[in-house]
Amino acid sequence: MTEKTTALVTGANKGIGYEVAAGLAREGMTVLLGSRDRERGEEAAARLRAADGDVRPVVLDVTDPATIEAAAAALTRLDVLVNNAGISGTAWVPPSATSPRTVWEVFETNVIGVLMVTNAMLPLLRRSPAARIVNVSSGVGSLAHHTDPGHYMSGLPPMATYPVSKTALNSLTVQYAKELRKDGILVNAAAPGACATDFSKDLPYKITRTAADGAAIIIRLATLGPDGPTGGFYDDEGIVPW
């Protein structure tokens, strides 16, 4: 590994994570493209390497401690961590009809996975002169949106999986920001918005926003200067209410 600024993006073989990897590579970083599937990760990294810069595949399943530990052990430097990997669970099922197992599966990736990856990478991030952590959340994690009668999210069907996991991730982001402030590590949550990716293909409405559009706020938070914010929740327009 060179001494060039190094970033790790989880769940980056496609969608928003792929575009984040591309954008950080264009910023001149060495980008480690995390993917559960080795072949898909290698293919994605090769495409980005040909077009955008130094992108290297890393096998990393955020629910598998062995792959997380192996990825951390293989690194000598890390400056930016983007916790992008996430799953939606069963859509449009109300809490009263949701099984605890389904909730656990979503939290295992969207919250516990973030905790495991972040903790494994912290020794490296603490050695960085300007470490940044970005947790990819969602506007549906905003309690303010869901309880505001004037906001469209207050009319969405109730769910106990994805929105709840993103609210929990927002809280986890704040707690990491509190802990790591003294180390100079900036930790923020990003709301990329609904984008036309495989993740949103089952939504009952047309989405025109691209994965690259969604990646922009994540890249911005990953490249904050020393006076940048920490412990916040942001989208393209600025602060998202909790």
Rank of each mutant, 00 (worst) to 15 (best):
T90H: 10
M1D: 14
G184Q: 09
A120N: 12
P94W: 09
G139S: 11
V114R: 01
A160L: 07
K201Q: 14
L33M: 03
L143W: 14
T63Q: 15
P204I: 06
A97W: 01
T118V: 08
G11S: 06
P100A: 14
V59W: 02
P149V: 02
D202N: 14
A50G: 12
K201I: 13
V62Y: 06
G141W: 10
A71D: 13
L32A: 02
G86S: 08
G139W: 11
L115V: 15
P65D: 03
D235P: 07
A191E: 10
G17I: 06
A51L: 10
V164H: 01
A190W: 05
K178S: 00
V62C: 10
D235L: 13
E3G: 14
H145A: 15
R36Q: 00
R220E: 15
L78P: 05
G214V: 12
N188I: 07
T147M: 13
D227Y: 00
V117F: 05
D235Y: 11
T109P: 05
S88C: 07
T223W: 05
A191L: 03
R181K: 14
S200R: 05
P229M: 10
S35L: 04
V240T: 10
L180P: 03
A51G: 04
I87L: 11
A215F: 11
A66E: 14
M159H: 00
R209S: 06
V93L: 14
G225F: 09
A50V: 03
L203E: 12
I185D: 08
N83G: 09
T210I: 09
T2L: 12
D202H: 14
V164I: 06
E108T: 01
A160G: 11
Y205R: 10
A168S: 14
A130W: 02
L8I: 06
A215H: 12
